Amino acid sequence: MTTHTPQPERRGRGLTVADAMDPCDYQIADDNTVDQADDILRGAGIEYLLVRGHDGRCEGLVTRTGLHPFLTRSWYTERTAISATAHQRGPFTWPTMGLALAAIAMRVKHLAVWPVVDEDGYILGVLTADRATVLLTTPPG
């Protein structure tokens, strides 16, 4: 009798979001102002910030593009809280989700970055479309 040893899945199948997620070093509270977010984005040279609620859970993601309408009027930036802006909100991905499925969801939703949260909604990191694509298209080696 011949037995077959299961082969590892090919081309990214079997990978999860946890295999591809990156830490997110930059976060902002949802009650901070647009002006404060803009200062962080410019100072750090980054394109997005994860938004935390008052309880520390992920509320979404804000980008420079999303802040642009508020930045055109200086008095708005000083008084407008991040929570009042149109920014990417949930649902978010979780670390156990299949990477191929997450990549499809990101394409459908037109997301370049997707927050990764635990079962309680706390931020674990981010999944970028670029990183997911690289991992899914790299042959096993």
Rank of each mutant, 00 (worst) to 15 (best):
M1V: 05
M1P: 04
H4P: 02
P6N: 01
Q7K: 14
E9N: 12
R11V: 08
R11D: 12
G12T: 09
G12E: 02
G12F: 04
R13A: 10
V17N: 04
A18D: 09
A18W: 02
M21L: 12
D22H: 08
C24Y: 05
Q27P: 00
A29K: 08
A29Y: 02
A29C: 09
D30G: 12
D31C: 13
N32M: 14
T33M: 09
V34W: 03
Q36E: 15
Q36H: 14
Q36V: 11
A37Y: 00
D39Y: 01
I40P: 04
L41C: 00
G45H: 02
G45A: 04
I46E: 05
Y48V: 08
L49M: 06
L49H: 09
L50A: 15
G53I: 02
H54P: 03
R57C: 02
C58L: 04
E59A: 09
G60C: 04
L61N: 05
T63Y: 01
T65A: 04
P69N: 06
L71N: 01
S74W: 07
S74E: 09
S74V: 08
Y76R: 14
T77K: 14
T77W: 00
R79W: 08
I82A: 11
A84T: 11
A84P: 03
A86R: 14
H87V: 01
H87M: 13
R89L: 02
R89A: 09
G90H: 02
P91N: 01
F92A: 07
W94M: 10
P95L: 09
L99N: 06
A100Q: 10
A100T: 10
L101D: 06
I104G: 01
A105R: 07
R107I: 02
V108L: 09
K109M: 08
K109C: 07
H110W: 10
H110S: 15
L111F: 13
A112L: 05
A112K: 11
W114D: 13
P115S: 07
D118S: 08
E119A: 11
D120S: 12
D120K: 05
D120I: 00
D120N: 06
G121H: 07
Y122W: 03
G125R: 11
V126T: 13
L127E: 07
T128L: 11
R131Q: 15
R131G: 06
R131A: 15
A132C: 14
T133Y: 06
V134C: 06
V134Q: 14
L135I: 05
L136E: 11
L136P: 15
T138M: 12
T138L: 13
T138S: 10
P140D: 07
